[in-house]
Structures are given as C-alpha cells and as structure tokens.
Amino acid sequence: MRPIEPFLTEFLTGTYKNLTAEQVTRQVYPVWTYSNLVLLVPVLLVTDFLRYKPVIILQGITYVTTMLLILFGSGVHLAQLAFFCYSVAMAADVAYFSYIYTMVQPRYYQRVTSYVKGAILLGYAVGAMLAQLLVSLGGVSLGCLAFITLISVSVALLTSFLLPMPKTSLFYKGTDSAQQGTSGEGTPDSEDFSIWAKSKTAAKHVGGKFRELVLDCKECYSSMAMLFYCIWSATGTCGFYQVSAYIQLFWLHIQPGNFTAYNGGVDAFSTLTGAAASVAVGHMSLEWSVWGELVLGGFTFVVAGAIFLMDLTDNIWISYMCYSLFKTVYLQLSTICT
C-alpha cells in the first residue's frame, strides 16, 4: 500500500523537490525503467538460490530506502538512487510467486497465483483510493502521503521477517556437492594445497550448477508454448512499466498544474478491476492450451488500441478511461501468463 505513487510525479516536480518535468522525464524515470529491466534476470536467479524469504526481506528494505531518499533527499542524483532502489524492489516481486509455489502442490498454482496477484493489487488500490480521498476531500499534503507510504512499507518489512523459511527450492535441488566432495578426504599436509583443492572443488560445484541451469533453460524453452508465453510476459511487462512510469507526466502535459485531478481514483479503479479479473482467472476452467494464445492475442490488441487512443486524444477523461482499460486487461493477461 503506497499512497504516494499516483501523485509521485507531482511530488517530484512540485515545491517538495523542485525538479523540472524535463529532469524527471529524461534523467530520473529512465533509471527506474531500464535498471528494472537489467535486474530482472539476476534477481530471479538469486531469488531461488537464497530460497525466496531473504529476497522478500530485501524488497522491504529497498522500499523503505526508496521512501527515505524520496522524503529526505534532494537533487537529481539522490532521486536517481531512490528510483534505482525502487527498481530493485519491483524486480523482487517475483519472490512472492516463487515463495508461494514452494508451499503448495502444483495443482493449486492457478488458484494461488490469482490470490497473490489479487492481494498485491488490492493493497495498491487501497493506497491509491486513500490518496485520492485525502488529497481531494481532506486537503492532505503530498508530503503526508509520502510519510504514510513510509510507514506502510516499514510495516511490510517487519512482517516479512515472520514468514516461514522454505525447506526446498523450485530450481536448486539436492545437497551441496561441494561439501560432499570434501567430506571424505583426509587433511593434506600442505595448507596451500588444501586451499587449492577446496577452490577447485568449489569451482567444479559452480560450473556444475551453471551447466544444470543451461540444460534446464534448454529443456524449458524447447516448448514453443512456454517460449511464446515468456516472450509475451517479458515484452508486456516492459511495456506496462513504461506506460505506468510516464502516464503521470502525460496527464500533466494534457492538464498542466492540476495535480488534484483524479490520478489516485483512476489508479484505484483500474487496479481494483484488474485485481477482480486476476482473481477470476484462478476460478476459470478454460482449456488454456487451446484458447490461451487466442485470448492473449485478442486482448493484447485491445491494450494496444487503448494506448494509441491515449496518444491521440487531448481529453483527460478519455485518457483516464483508456488507461483504466489498458491496466485492467494487462493485469488479467499477466496473471494468465504467470
């Protein structure tokens, strides 16, 4: 629950941080979008190696760091550092799904995916609606929204320590071969030789794990269906992050100087409908192997049409409706892919 997010652009370009729209567009937000793209793969690999819970805790730490930098930092460089931390937190979202998949049987994956996705979106929607109500009806400052967000992510960080640690990993299975390789050996007389032997064993272990990873990737992506869904997920996620990152600047361009427009309400509405659609996916009995690609293809055209219409219009209300349609449909499709 992060109430500041629907008004983040106004917070950065207003009297709080005094950054220009040009600085936010060309120097700050690109750090967010592109560093997230670079971090997704290494964070995924580290997530499974560390067995999920540490990465969930890391996500909480980076969210808290982001809010501290946004609240108390000043200047472009600290804003860039804040959004780099933010991109780490967003990349770590994968830990939630990997974590829950270790706790349930595969036959429940569809159901729990929709629940986890719905819970994340519900929290975001509550934050956005709270922000809109506080700003529009309560006259609360954006600085106060930032403090509420800091408290919220701090509570999330504290509760993440209470999660049970998974006993297994989805991908890294078996015992530590490095330990097996050294457990039965006698102690060499030479300390240097012992260090060399341990280093060689460790190198073999790392090499073996890397070969396992390559073989797993080869086996996984030999399935055309898996390859298709992964390509859609990667490109769709990048597109969604781009639109979400710059939509507030776009609205500021359409309706300059009016930050009490309904950014929070639109975000809340589109996220709630997306959450409902995501939960609904968990209860659908559609034969995805037959209809999945048709559903993805058809609704992707709807998403693309909404983005084009947003670009063509100068009416803020049409832009709001297009964004709501874009976000709702994307969130449902991303849940199907997951």
Score class of each variant (00 low, 15 high):
V155G: 10
K53F: 07
G236Q: 05
S98Y: 06
S278H: 01
T113F: 04
L45H: 06
Y172L: 08
S141D: 14
F269Y: 06
S74M: 12
L45S: 09
V126N: 12
T33C: 04
G60Y: 02
M67V: 04
S177R: 15
T335M: 00
D314H: 08
F7L: 05
A203P: 01
M67K: 02
I254H: 11
Y101R: 00
L68K: 02
Y34C: 06
L78S: 08
I316Q: 02
T187E: 07
G75M: 04
T33A: 05
S334A: 13
A92Q: 03
Y221E: 05
F210G: 05
K327L: 11
F308S: 14
F83Y: 15
V94N: 01
L312Y: 05
P54R: 05
L163Q: 12
S160G: 09
M103R: 11
Y246E: 08
Y172E: 04
A128Y: 07
T13K: 03
L142R: 12
P164C: 13
R107W: 03
S154T: 15
A82L: 04
S233E: 15
S319W: 00
R211K: 12
H283T: 07
K53G: 06
Q179C: 06
I57H: 03
M103F: 05
K209V: 06
Y101W: 01
I4H: 02
Y115P: 00
A178E: 14
S244C: 10
L170H: 10
L170F: 11
S114W: 00
F161Y: 08
L44F: 07
F308V: 15
G14A: 02
Y29K: 01
C230Q: 14
L309E: 02
F193Q: 13
Y34E: 08
F210N: 08
M90W: 09
T313Q: 11
T13S: 02
F11W: 04
L134I: 03
F49P: 00
F97W: 10
F326G: 00
L227Y: 01
L249M: 12
C337D: 12
A277D: 00
K173R: 15
I307L: 07
P54L: 09
P166N: 07
S233A: 14
C85T: 14
A304H: 06
V281K: 07
L142I: 03
G73T: 04
A245Q: 15
L71Q: 13
L249K: 11
L130A: 15
C238P: 05
S141Y: 05
T66G: 06
V43H: 09
A304C: 11
L215E: 12
G75R: 07
F301I: 14
P164Q: 14
G274Q: 00
S183Q: 12
T201C: 05
F326P: 00
F84C: 05
G297L: 12
F210S: 10
V140C: 08
F83R: 14
I61N: 01
G298N: 10
F301Y: 12
V302T: 10
V64N: 03
S194N: 11
G73V: 07
V329E: 07
V88M: 09
V140G: 07
L157Y: 02
L158G: 13
G127L: 02
M103Y: 01
S270R: 02
G274M: 01
F7V: 04
Y86E: 03
S74T: 15
S177F: 13
V303Y: 05
N263F: 03
H77Q: 13
L71E: 08
D176V: 13
G239S: 09
W196R: 10
L12V: 09
L37D: 08
L39K: 10
